[in-house]
Design a protein around this nucleic acid. Sequence first.
DNA 1: GTCTATAGGGCGATAGAC
DNA 2: GTCTATCGCCCTATAGAC
Lengths: 197, 197
Amino acid sequence: MHEAALELFGERGYARVTAAEVAERAGLTERTFFRHFADKREVLFDGNELGGLLAAAVADAPEGVAPVEAVVAGLEAVAAVFEDRREAVARRARVVEAHPELRERELAKLASWSKALEGVLVGRGLPEPDAMLLAEVSVAVFRVAYRRWLDGGTARELAAIIRETLAGLGGLFAHTAPGPRDLSAARAGAAARRSDR
Amino acid sequence: MHEAALELFGERGYARVTAAEVAERAGLTERTFFRHFADKREVLFDGNELGGLLAAAVADAPEGVAPVEAVVAGLEAVAAVFEDRREAVARRARVVEAHPELRERELAKLASWSKALEGVLVGRGLPEPDAMLLAEVSVAVFRVAYRRWLDGGTARELAAIIRETLAGLGGLFAHTAPGPRDLSAARAGAAARRSDR
DNA sequence: GTCTATAGGGCGATAGAC
DNA sequence: GTCTATCGCCCTATAGAC
C-alpha cells in the first residue's frame, strides 16, 4: 500500500485522501489497512527496519572501535539502503515534507533511532550520560546529512556526506570544549529581552 | 485549558479523555476547544513561544560572539523560563512522556525550534550548510540537558547542565575532526548483516 | 465484517469590545 | 462599523471495539 499511498498523497494531499481510498487502490479494504497500520500515517513509515539496522550495525562494530566510529559505521549501513534508491527516497521525502502530520511521524521515527542507538551504546560500554548525548547528536547529524544529500543536485554519496558533516561538527564546537566562557554580555541581552514581556 | 487538560490526561490517560471533557472542565464547549487548538494535542503545546524566545535571544547576542556562544545564550534564555517552575515543568513532562501522541508533538515543536534557530544563525552570517547543523545539534544538546535536568534529583541549574553537556560534546567528537579513519572492518560487518535479509 | 465514538472541519449565529 | 470569542448543528473519516 506504500506505493498507493505515495501516489494519492502526492496527487491530492494527505488530508484529502482517505485510508479507504489507499486500500482500494491497493485492491484491499479499509479494514485491512488498519489491520496493517496503527494509523493512517504509518503507511509511509512501515515499522522501523532502519532503526533496527542502525542499532544492529553499531552493535556489530569491532570491540576496540571508539563509540563515534561505531556510530558512523551504523549510519553508513543506513545510508547504504538509501544510496541506490535515491529517486524513490527523494519522492517519498517530498511527500512527507509537504505534510505536517507526516513530518511529525518522521521525527518520531528518528527519535526511536536515537533510543535504540542509545541502548546499543550503553551495551558497548559507553557510560549513560554520554550515550544519550552521542545518540541524539548522531541522529541530528544524520538528519542534516540526509537533507544535504537530497538537496545536492549531484548524486554525491550519502555516506561521504555523513562523514563530512560529522567533521564539520568538530569544527563548529571546537572552541567550546575547554569550558564555559564569558558570556555575560550575551546573557544580559537575553535577560533584558526576557524581562520586557 | 492547559491546566484542565494536564489534570485529565494525568488521571485517565490522553486517549480516554475527550476534547469536550477538557473544554467542559474549563467552562467552555468542544467547539471552542477546536477554535483555540488545531487539534487535541495542541492543548499542551500552545503556540511556540519558547521557539520565539530562543530565536530572539540568539538574535540579540552581541555581534562579535561566535555562533555556538550565541546559541548558548539563547538556550539559557529558554532555560531561565523553566528554572523557577521546575515542578510544573516536570509534571507536564511526565504526562507528555507517557503518551506517544504527545511525545510526537513535542518532537515537532523542538524541530520548529531548530528551524527558527537555523534562520537566525543564517541572519548572523553563519553560512547555510553549517547553520542547519549547528541548529539541529544545539537542539539535540538541549534535549539531553533537559532530560538530565529533569532526572537529576537535586535542583541543579538547567543552564549549567546545558553548558556542561555542550562541553561533553566537544570531548565525544574530538577525535573525528581530523577526517575519515579506516572503518573498513566496521563497514564489512554492517555489509554482511545487510546482505542477509 | 459490522458498529460506534470521537476527531476535527464547514458554515453560520450570537454577542461583546473597540 | 469591524474584530474576535463563543457556541450550534451537521458532516465525514479515523480508529477502536465487538
